[in-house]
Design a protein around this nucleic acid. Sequence first.
DNA 1: AATAGATGCCAAA
DNA 2: TTGGCCTCTATTT
Length: 335
Amino acid sequence: MPEGHTVHRLAATFGDLFLGSRVSLSSPQGRFAAGSALLDGHVLVASEAYGKQMFLGFAPQPEAVPTEELRWLRVHLGLYGAWTFAGDPATAVVHAIGAPRKRVGERETVLAGGGGISSGASASPAPGDWEPPAPRGAVRVRLESEHACADLTGPTACEVLTTPEARAVQRRLGPDPLRPDSDPGRFVEAVVRSRSPIGVLLMNQEVIAGVGNIYRAEALFRAGQNPLAPGITVSREVVLDIWRDVAELMADGVRTGAIVTTRPEDRSRGEGLPDVGAPRRLARQNTDAEPGAVAREDSFYVYQRDGLPCRICRTPIALSVMATRNLFRCPTCQP
DNA sequence: AATAGATGCCAAA
DNA sequence: TTGGCCTCTATTT
């Protein structure tokens, strides 16, 4: 269950692991057999994220190929999609999973050896002898190089596109706060010209690309903004502040692999506030066990904290539904 | 064993 | 607004 920060990490991971390498593609599950065949044996020459979508560029040979002639694998993880990586022991440790999967001990690392999640006992093979682990579950696509492999499960979109087709997809997306070339003004104008609630606009990928349900809820809380307010009623200044805040939060997310929107002083473990309670459902963070990582129950102001007291004013967090998704809000702090 | 639910999104009504 | 899709995990029976 990724928002944009996860996809940007994934694109970076593919760059680390496969850029410049010839890769084989297969579809262990079978549902992407035709697409895999189109790219099988090609060289990865580009790895990019636009909002929640990742584009991997392939060329038939390593020699320079005009951009117009590349083939692109477009992957959108949707709600459940995930990538898992494995690599030989010599391969640098990298990061990134899509959907959080709480298997004991799982981290954002490349799994050395053939054993999958907890490869454990078996002696590491010599780098040259590395064999990728057997696919686990319904693997739509496997990318495999000499030293690493990546398995995709459960994507909402996975297809091969030409360059113009890929561009057409990208053009329909709003500015992505994680891309340096993005124009905040496009976001601001789209919001202040719309009668839709700002809580809907933030989830609209044509308005801003990469924001999902957590960043929506948290950014609106941090702005003290009622999600129901029509965009047209919000000042440009406030909208621009929201852009800047989201950009910073998401950049943190890329760095750490986890969404953390609380300021240290607002976390229950910190000074000051008495324990404000754990959520009843334990959503997962990729970095739970990481030393220094912020615990999941301290990471958010409102997301999945319905019924719990607001960290600032103690009013119970309210839950409703907006744009088909759960919306969390503090009725007092976000009037 | 069965079900609910998840950081998403589309098409049909 | 609703149903459908994709997959896996945690919770409930």
